[in-house]
């Protein structure tokens, strides 16, 4: 079926195959920052923001985003405080999980701009990093919070 939606701020259309998941549709559309690891919604590597909430693109049918807005990390501006914070905090090893982390942190900070480390760790519970970069990712959350506050 034909799916019309907004992708990273621009109107987009795609032809969703039978039972095609959003992760596959977005990758076919060139959004290679959206990655499949677990296929069961537990790892966060395929996280995208639909309307205002991060979701697992591996469990959402492409058909479900008809008429909605999808944001990937590729749609964020260079001066995005979370992107900047992850860069400055060296919060990545292989980089596979990083886009999902970034989007999750964006949503977390939108709800809780002064989030502490413990709540941030809880909020990142659904994002796996097998390289084990968690401590620096939590540093990045703190830094992103500071940069966001400065921006406002």
């Amino acid at each position: 079926m034909r799916v019309a939606f907004v992708l990273d701020g621009a109107p987009a259309e795609l032809e969703a195959g039978e039972g095609e998941m959003l992760v596959d549709a977005l990758r076919a559309a060139g959004r290679l920052s959206v990655r499949e690891t677990c296929g069961i919604g537990v790892c966060g590597a395929c996280a995208v923001i639909v309307d205002d909430e991060p979701v697992s693109a591996c469990l959402m049918l492409a058909a479900q985003v008809d008429g909605r807005s999808v944001t990937t990390v590729e749609g964020l501006p260079d001066d995005d405080p979370v992107l900047q914070a992850f860069t400055q905090a060296h919060a990545a090893q292989c980089g596979w999980c990083t886009p999902g982390m970034v989007l999750t942190v964006k949503a977390m900070l939108a709800d809780d701009p002064q989030i502490d480390r413990e709540r941030a760790a809880e909020g990142l519970g659904g994002n796996l990093c097998r390289c084990g970069s968690y401590s620096r990712i939590l540093d990045a959350v703190q830094l992103a919070a500071e940069l966001t506050l400065k921006e406002d």
Binding site: M21, G41, S56, L59, L61
Partner: peptide, 25 residues
Amino acid sequence: HAGGTFLGILMNQGLIAPPALLSLG
């Protein structure tokens, strides 16, 4: 098909291949 998270897991694992979905979205 409500949120679809559970169905998505089953479909991804090839455990079900429903001929039709009734979305309540």
